[in-house]
């Protein structure tokens, strides 16, 4: 059955529809929460809380809205509240350019081949995950929503309740930091 039909059935209180939606979103939602909070136990609690919130608020959901964005907004709010309570410092967003004072693209001399290609060949995913975890929450969040959830920038703006321009600048800075950190880990590969 389709997503719209499941959502409509859930709004009427159909328990099977809730079960179907949990199955449909379980991996994506869990991944998103884990990327935000890192710790499995915390991600599991937030996963449960998000679905409890869905059950409590589904009747106020406007069916003309995008369910994905609504669901991830609930999860985002819960995760940010959680981090604010437990690790408020983790929510600090670095000032633009604080990493180096200029963008990575500007630092690279034209024509120099960065080591990305060889880096990604080696331990690609473990390294990427590790590097991503070292980014600030705001950056990890836009990366996972854009590249893993494949949300459009407008949808990300809806989930985060932020202007599109903010999302774009966070995306750019998060990619630059990601690349910069990857290169810093393997400086020898630059040759």
């Amino acid at each position: 059955m389709g997503l719209d039909s499941d959502v409509a059935r859930l709004r009427r209180g159909d328990v099977d529809a809730l079960s179907a939606l949990i199955s449909r979103y379980q991996n994506r939602l869990y991944r998103y929460l884990l990327r935000l909070v890192h710790r499995e136990a915390e991600a599991e609690d937030l996963f449960q809380e998000t679905w409890m919130r869905v059950a409590a608020k589904i009747r106020s959901f406007d069916p003309n809205r995008n369910f994905d964005a609504w669901l991830f907004t609930l999860a985002h709010n819960l995760a940010i509240d959680h981090l604010r309570r437990l690790r408020p410092e983790s929510l600090d967003e670095p000032a633009p350019g604080s990493d180096s004072g200029e963008s990575l693209a500007a630092r690279l001399p034209s024509g120099e081949r960065p080591p990305i290609e060889s880096l990604l060949e080696r331990e690609r995913f473990g390294l990427l995950q590790e590097t991503m975890q070292a980014l600030p929450v705001a950056y990890r969040e836009v990366l996972t929503l854009r590249f893993e959830e494949e949300m459009k920038i407008e949808e990300i703006a809806q989930v985060l309740g932020a202007p599109i321009s903010t999302i774009k600048s966070r995306l750019r800075r998060s990619l630059e930091q990601m690349r910069s950190k990857l290169e810093a880990q393997y400086p020898g590969d630059a040759s």
Binding site: N27, Y30, R31, L120, F125, L128, Q129, M132, F147, E148
Partner: peptide, 10 residues
């Protein structure tokens, strides 16, 4: 690479 990172399963 970011798009193809393994998805952790609950």
């Amino acid at each position: 690479g970011l798009r193809r990172m393994p998805t952790p399963q609950p």
